[in-house]
Write a protein that binds this DNA or RNA. Structure first.
Lengths: 285, 285
DNA sequence: TTGTATGCGTTATCAA
DNA sequence: TTGATAACGCATACAA
């Protein structure tokens, strides 16, 4: 008498301790719960191998669908696991081969980043440091937004990009390198909230005043950005809406709809952490 | 040939968007994953009705055990649902009737709070405001720690306690009331990280300088406490260890062990957000 | 044609 | 040293 469906959904999360992902998860969980589905959660901690394991675990448990934010987009094993999986897939802010037939919920990081960098260029900055996490879609789109801003103003690409991990450690190390290097940037964009924490630590250690000695922009709104003094400019999005949208896309797939892609906007919010570059900084180009 | 167990665990969380709970969850999930268990997560959003729903969902899915942090400890319906449940239960930082035969992982909030308040009393404070969330174990234990500190010094209980919810809104409103009232406190203790955000907002709105005009102590270490200027004193614990311990207790129950209780320590960390009370404050008692 | 995307082959790295 | 696994890069194919 029972249907073949388990009325459960698997969520493969990269790092649950990230408050952003927690919000996405909450949005998805709430929507799925209202539709009568339980959410199973697993944690990969940024490890592609555990992504594969987790996908297999969900396969064994016969979940009706998968929500996932994979650790590595191009990873051969991950793609192979997903190809074997029969259930609908919704990818959250990650690019996957179209042949998988997945749905996508993506943030338009590029537009927000472009607006942020144009704001810095308007203020007179020319050397900007961009600190990114692993080379997954959000990082790549953010870099493109940076490139577009410079290209649109016909300026030489004097920005410096530091790829790494979405960790406070990388944020701190990259900020230190940028600030201690030759021709240090007059503005820094932190591409993730853990990266922001690390960057702030390095900045505070050097006694630099935000908005005067150095400008700073954060990706994603953490409470810290509005409570910090001065308040920190940010590229905003709505993570809970992202989770809800992911859940809705999955529910449509379960109702026999085809794969869809939804792109959600990001918005730049100027705040006093951005000011004109210090006068002694070399204004090239 | 398959065992009757589903090798899955249900985690009933109050509010996943709380970074503290996210860390507890991650600790539990990692340990359970290593033991071959998948973690199912549901979210109650502080609503006892949804606690009951979620417990029933897990019952239907035949999970092997439950980890939970209930919204309301005394709630009749919640207790009744738990009584019906056949699987082992581990309660995280919540009191439940002993007749349920649950295991417990608890934080020793009282000791940390007592040390924190004694620090304030040593600095000369007599009027302290304590902002708490809902009346569950952490709040109750924190209040007791406050009481003990005053009693141990033979001081009149000039502290003021504000129970409410674990939200930034309550933190801001309660801080505003305390500061705008007659005989305002010279120090405030924020009993939860969302409460801290609200309190800081109210304090910043009034242009008060921490450590000089007002002293502030936070419960639980959010990155904000070390990045804020001045850094904010806190009562520290290890949420990830709490999740791991909860998972271990549950695994022991699954291996036919009896119910156990583990109490994990909290530690007060003094920081510059605490200073002597301003001279113009009335020093009573 | 140019940019983009995908799949395969190769190398590098780490752990046993 | 060997095995496995992850990162890199090229060639191809498709689309704008």
């Amino acid at each position: 008498m029972r249907s073949r469906t388990t009325h459960s959904i698997g969520f493969v999360a990269g790092d649950i301790s990230n408050p952003l992902l927690a919000e996405i998860l909450m949005g998805a969980e709430t929507t799925l719960h209202d539709a009568g589905y339980a959410t199973l959660l697993t944690n990969s901690e940024g490890n592609p191998g555990r992504d594969i394991e987790n996908i297999q675990i969900f396969e064994q448990r016969r979940v009706d669908g998968l929500l996932l934010s994979v650790a590595s987009e191009g990873h051969r094993g991950t793609i192979a696991s997903l190809r074997r999986t029969q259930v609908p897939i919704v990818s959250i802010d990650r690019n996957l081969p179209a042949s998988l037939g997945a749905s996508f919920v993506l943030s338009d990081h590029r537009t927000g980043m472009r607006a942020a960098v144009e704001h810095l260029l308007d203020l007179g900055h020319r050397r900007v440091g961009l600190i990114l996490g692993t080379p997954v879609r959000p990082s790549i789109e953010r870099q493109r937004g940076m490139e577009e801003a410079y290209a649109h103003r016909d300026l030489s690409p004097l920005y410096e990009v530091r790829l790494g991990t979405f960790s406070a450690e990388h944020g701190e190390a990259a900020t230190a390198e940028l600030l201690d290097g030759k021709d240090p940037p007059t503005a820094i964009v932190a591409g993730g909230n853990q990266i922001l924490y690390g960057a702030l630590k390095a900045i505070a250690n050097r006694g630099l005043e935000l908005g005067a000695d150095l400008s700073l922009i954060s990706c994603d709104a953490v409470s810290l950005t509005e409570l910090y003094r001065p308040p920190i400019a940010l590229i905003k999005r709505r993570p809970m809406a992202m989770g809800q949208e992911a859940a809705r896309l999955l529910l449509r797939r379960l109702g026999a709809g085809g794969p869809e892609t939804v792109v959600l906007p990001t918005e730049f919010v100027a705040r006093p952490s951005c000011g004109p570059p210090p006068l002694h900084a070399p204004l090239t180009n």
